[in-house]
């Protein structure tokens, strides 16, 4: 163990102090502000704001986009992680780099890309119209943008776990005649379970809070293409401060819920790893 001297003790408390100050200033204070502002005019006003028809619709749209993003990125994340770690092929490096692109590109640009790809000025726009498919300023656009920005979250959690461990167990199972899905279910999945759940949580958190990309492509149609973050912005721009903070508090609650889920998963993952590494 590191032995504490007087000066190292001072350093220790100084560093802890800085961290605590930072957390209070940057996280706790805003959080308290959100809650106090939300309840400034009493519970009745708060209740009215969160049960408002548009708020409820925005809530469900947010959940829908989040659920779809999680489901689709689960499929994509598993396939990508699997193919990148278990097979050798041309362009593997490029694929690995491209998967990370959504994290490095500004969400606004992501929104614009979809706007240009599926919007009026796009060459495929007439085609979409013929099929009666609306993407821009409609729910599919919001879902697409959400999927895009949360694209790498699950695969990036899985790749290191799969890489750290060879193919041996899968090969051993295959030699005994086990089929692909059985091998995945019984051998591979138990191994990646915690990393996978962690990826899902991160993906869900990011999907719920997404603002930039969704903002560009949604068109801000109240009750139709408004997600919770967009709804907060609209209310705020209309000087409806209390309702804005009330709706924001829903997002805060969701975030806290996810934080708890994350801690539980981390705790369980660590505990499991101790018994069966």
């Amino acid at each position: 163990m590191y032995k504490e001297t007087k000066s190292s003790k001072a350093v220790k408390w100084f560093l802890i102090g800085v961290s605590v100050l930072f957390v209070v200033l940057m996280l706790l204070l805003p959080l308290i502000t959100v809650i106090t502002e939300a309840f400034k005019q009493g519970f009745a006003v708060y209740e009215k704001a969160v049960t408002d028809n548009y708020t409820v619709k925005a809530f469900w749209l947010t959940l829908e986009a989040t659920a779809l993003a999680v489901v689709i990125n689960t499929v994509f994340g598993l396939s990508a992680a699997w193919s990148l770690t278990k097979f050798h092929f041309r362009g593997k490096k490029i694929l690995t780099t491209l998967i990370d692109l959504p994290v490095t590109v500004s969400p606004i640009i992501a929104g614009l890309i979809f706007l240009l790809t599926f919007g009026r000025q796009s060459p495929i726009f007439p085609l979409l119209q013929d099929w009666d498919v609306k993407i821009v300023f409609a729910v599919p656009g919001i879902v697409l943008a959400t999927i895009f920005v949360t694209f790498p979250f699950i695969s990036r959690e899985l790749i290191p776990v799969l890489e750290a461990r060879g193919n041996d167990e899968e090969e051993a199972a295959a030699l005994m005649g086990a089929k692909g899905f059985t091998i995945f279910r019984k051998i591979t999945f138990p191994h990646i379970k915690w990393a996978f759940l962690y990826g899902v949580v991160l993906c869900a958190a990011r999907a719920m809070g997404e603002f930039g990309a969704v903002s560009v492509i949604s068109g801000h149609l109240r009750g139709k293409t408004n997600t919770l973050p967009l709804h907060v912005e609209i209310l705020f721009n209309e000087f409806q401060y209390v309702p804005a903070f009330a709706v924001a508090s829903i997002l805060v609650l969701l975030a806290i819920f996810i934080l708890i889920a994350r801690s539980l998963i981390e705790y369980n993952g660590k505990k499991k790893n101790k018994v069966e590494p």
Partner: peptide, 19 residues
Amino acid sequence: ASKRGIGFVFQSYALFRYM
């Protein structure tokens, strides 16, 4: 491989660690 009916002991043993 799955149809050859061959027993294989891997150098790393490759035991199923979650079983």
